[in-house]
Design a protein around this nucleic acid. Structure first.
Lengths: 260, 260
DNA sequence: CTGGACCTTCTCGTTACGTCAACTTCTAGC
DNA sequence: GCTAGAAGTTGACGTAACGAGAAGGTCCAG
């Protein structure tokens, strides 16, 4: 009892193209290929196909399916690893969905947690910030503020608002990381901090040292601190740690002992 | 304040290749490209990139990111649709994880719900089945059983066991669909039934009419019924409906009024 | 012997880039 | 001015799992 490729396609719900593909990659070979090139499948092939379809439905990559079915050596271990991937994927989706929800709420104006602009608010208080940095670290730290090119003057009102919303979203994501017990220096947080660093650089060409100095500003500067506490009262010191961690680990900042 | 491609790469954590790619597909154009081909990015481009990264982290496809950022016309609606996709994806993952768990349990012998073989059990009772079908629908229905080529005689013991485990898993997945209130004729169930049909065909070249006749067997034949009830007491009648639905909707069976 | 159904082997397109390869350009040091 | 090295460029191929379509061979019924 042999079956043509279209018969197998009908029985399995696959297309003949897919079956040809499985032949190409060696996942499911026909029992024989006639001299005219026609593929013929037998019962044993159908059994294998059935198991292929099952594993495929579990999102197991075809290559792995082949390994599981061939050397059955440790199909269970492979499945366990696959399960771990699935769970991680699902957890990540949970986070993403939550973030999307808050983003939608933010965009539709349902969330007025803070009408203040974050990055732009930062920009509006440049003089304040500059004095703060200079007082803490001397004139060199504030020097970067001199260029007029760092101002956001060229932005439209819409761009301002988008930047502000972006900043609030970022702070909320950081708040989430903090409240879930994630360390400020963990890789996941540093990834988020790269967004923060980039946001800061939109307004101010901070190098590693200047960015590092910003850590003290978010806890020490009343305006900055109040803006952040409005989103999460416990965030400022944690954010300060994250800023320092990012400056050191991703920007290569070497904690100064008085150089320059 | 213009930035070279490698500066932007460092700031954003992307590679220069990725930035070149974004230029190619029109997602992020440099503010200018010098006569030597070098790309230069300004503040406005960094702002756009920041929003790109945010949406990208939410698994929004690049093409859609472009549409959202350009004509901001209905970015919220797009996000809502995207959210629906994410939720569906997560729900599907939940199901898959549950199935993988049961599969692992099955493979490691932790689940001895039924030591009987399903498809192979069906095979072992071929005479029984044949008499049943003939009694219900006349000799024509049982005729398919005559070929010796339908026997699973060529199978190894391992193949028998795998087929049996596969059959039990399928019944459990069907049971899950039933208990969650899914209709036997729904697309999702028909997809599962294609596995059932294929499993049956491994043992017995049933056409649409013969498969349709099998519906009465799973409720009427004591052996079959008992085997299925062992997995889910409420499954037999529901499974019968699913078999009929599959025969009609996927195999094109026309409910007979006495033809042939 | 002809039409239609079914089969074959290319080949390109999809997504979001990674990874060479081959070349040009810029910059710093001698 | 020369040269090495860093950084830039444009192709072009590879990835996973096929879909779609082209161009052509094969089989079967009327």
């Amino acid at each position: 009892m042999e079956h043509s490729i279209s018969e197998v396609a009908r029985m399995s719900g696959l297309t003949s193209r897919t079956l040809r593909h499985y032949d190409d990659i060696g996942l499911l070979r026909p029992v024989r290929t006639a001299s005219n090139g026609y593929r013929w499948y037998g019962r044993r092939e159908l059994l294998r196909l059935q198991r292929i379809l099952f594993l495929r439905e579990l999102d197991v990559p075809l290559a792995q399916i082949g390994r599981i079915l061939d050397g059955d050596r440790d199909g269970v271990a492979a499945l366990r690893r696959h399960r771990a991937d699935l769970v991680a994927h699902r957890d990540r989706l949970e986070e993403i969905i939550a973030t999307v929800d808050r983003t939608i709420a933010d965009l539709t104006g349902q969330a007025h947690l803070s009408e203040e602009e974050f990055f732009t608010g930062l920009s509006a208080r440049r003089d304040d910030l500059r004095r703060d940095l200079e007082a803490r670290y001397g004139a060199a730290a504030g020097e970067h503020f001199t260029g007029a090119d760092t101002v956001t003057g060229g932005w439209t009102r819409e761009e301002h608002e988008q930047a502000a919303a972006q900043g609030r979203r970022l702070l909320r994501r950081l708040s989430e990381a903090r409240s879930s017990g994630t360390a400020p220096g963990s890789a996941a947080v540093l990834d988020l901090m790269s967004e923060h660093y980039q946001g800061v650089r939109l307004l101010w060409p901070a190098d590693a040292a200047a960015y590092h100095a910003l850590a003290d500003v978010v806890t020490g500067n009343p305006n900055q601190r109040a803006m952040i506490e409005e989103i999460d009262p416990l965030l400022p010191p944690w954010l300060a740690d994250a800023i320092r961690a990012y400056a050191v680990r991703r920007l290569g900042y070497v904690p100064a002992r008085g150089r320059e």
